[in-house]
Nucleic acid binder design. Structure first.
Length: 443
RNA sequence: GUGGUUGUAGCUCAGUUGGUUAGAGCAUUGGAUUGUGAUUCCAAGGGUCGCCGGUUCGAGUCCGGUCUGCCACCCCA
């Protein structure tokens, strides 16, 4: 029996790679002072109906549990987060900056960059309505890419704004009740022929041709100045002018953080998820290859819809599958860490007790240490030392302790009572630190 | 969900117009040698040829179905 379609087994090599990615996610989130939280993987089906949009609902992994409850494996984290924050909102200091690394599930046809079970890095800011929160999230997204070694030549963020669209459409005479239908049409515009789009707009009793022309033009603009100039031809539409002020603040902050090279203004992005309300963005490879690496935006009404207080919110998610493909394509996969740093060998079996004492001593200092588990020739032992990637082999012999640098072959005799200091001097850090502060970097 | 494509040892692949006990390289394990390692040599394990059914005296090879992987649609992480 194989694994279920779209699910993965992680052998040690894949596991190491995955954990490397997780580490970078967590490290970067903590550098931005986000706090880790956890939500259930299984949630009531109801949490996703009507909140996430039809597309997500269609891909839900859902079933009935033994108690007859309709439940779903989480397809994303945002509704769970919004519910959690909503429940305790009154007691939480603002801004609320939380992150999570966890598995999500979507029942869809697996292919490149898309599986049924995948890990996501989620980061959200709640309780701050201004563009400073959007800037911080976009900065976290970009810095994460940078920490993987990706540059602005390789990836970029396509930045858009649903608020701007809604106001522009209103000013063009689209009635209130049709705004979201038109937004959906814009979302699919990139993949549809003009005639089809016009037909869809006319079905809504709108001036298809004229409206499409305006939509296409606005989507094609790549600078704030150009957008401003275009919208100003509509004369003094107050909300539009104040929205452009938000844009200026956002762009100024991104510029101050020296992140502008990563940003492409592209109003062609609208995003399918129903709950987005303001700035929205998706990260892609510059080449246009592959799927979205990350996506996010503002969702100011979701917390309230889930029964919480009115609370502004924004966030993004980054997936491991698509990110791994991208890192591989750009030669940014992290190097594999060795299995052991130090190998303890013995010249004869009678020395094993002494070797085991030394092994344990080094392990208690947090070094990664390995020896053989059964009688083995010295040559085999050193071969094994090489195989597990150890930098040094310590051979216990009747003449004393011989330390060999396996990278250059040099050997020297080391006194056993100074071996820890000797290894430290040779660059062996203690990756675990003292046994009790080792969790600082984990979440 | 729709369409296309794929499937032989852990991995990469051979396997002639259907014809006896299905092969190689790498990897793994064991042994020999070198006696504080990366060499060399020898050997072994490992495959109901994705699965089910059909055609045939005979199927890894032909046909049908099915599953999985991959690609596109769809959409997104």
């Amino acid at each position: 029996m194989g694994t279920l379609p779209g699910f993965r087994q992680f052998f040690p090599q894949e596991c190491a790679l995955r954990d490397n990615i997780f580490d970078t996610w967590r490290r970067t989130a903590k550098a931005f002072a986000f706090q880790p939280y956890e939500a259930p993987t299984l949630e009531p089906l109801e949490l996703y109906i009507e909140k996430s949009g039809q597309e997500v609902v269609d891909q839900l992994f859902c079933f009935q549990d033994k108690g007859g409850r309709a439940i779903a494996l989480r397809p994303e984290l945002t509704p769970s987060l919004a519910a959690m924050v909503g429940a305790k909102a009154a007691a939480l200091k603002r801004p609320i900056k939380w992150f999570n690394v966890g598995e999500c599930y979507r029942y869809e046809r697996p292919q490149k960059g898309r599986l049924r079970a995948f890990y996501q890095f989620n980061a959200d800011i709640l309780g701050e309505a201004g563009p400073g929160a959007d800037a911080e999230l976009i900065a976290l997204m970009i810095t994460t890419f940078q920490n993987f070694g990706l540059t602005e030549q390789q990836v970029h963020i396509r930045l858009s704004d649903r608020t701007l669209w809604l106001q522009a459409l209103s000013s063009w005479g689209v009635p209130q009740e049709q705004l979201f239908a038109v937004l959906n049409i814009i979302d699919k515009r990139e993949r549809e022929a003009a005639q089809q789009v016009i037909a869809k707009l006319e079905a809504l009793h709108l001036e298809g041709e004229k409206l499409l022309q305006a939509i296409d033009h606005l989507s094609s603009l790549r600078s704030l100045q150009a957008i401003e100039a275009f919208l100003n031809t509509n004369k003094h539409h107050e909300p539009l002018i104040s929205r452009l002020e938000d844009w200026k603040v956002l762009m100024a902050q991104l510029e101050a953080m020296e992140l502008l090279p990563f940003i492409t203004i592209d109003l062609g992005i609208v995003r399918g998820l129903a709950y987005y309300t303001g700035f929205v963005y998706e990260a892609f490879e510059r080449s246009g290859q592959g799927r979205a690496l990350a996506g996010g935006g503002r969702y100011d009404t979701l917390v309230e819809k889930l029964g919480g207080p009115q609370l502004p919110a924004a966030g993004f998610a980054m997936g491991d599958v698509t990110l791994q493909d991208c890192l591989q394509a750009h030669n940014c996969l992290p190097a594999q860490a060795p299995q052991a740093a130090v190998f303890i060998a013995i010249t004869e079996e009678s020395l094993r007790p002494q070797a085991l004492r030394l092994t344990q001593q080094l392990r208690r200092h947090g070094l990664q240490v390995q020896g053989t588990l059964k009688p083995t020739s010295l040559n085999k032992q050193l071969e094994q030392a090489q195989h597990v990637g150890a930098h040094h082999a310590l051979t216990v012999s009747p003449e004393g302790l011989v330390a060999k640098d396996l990278r250059n072959g040099h050997s020297e005799v080391v006194k056993e009572d100074v071996v820890v200091e000797w290894l430290r001097a040779k660059g062996h850090s203690c990756p675990l630190g003292s046994p009790f502060d080792s969790d600082l970097l984990k979440c």
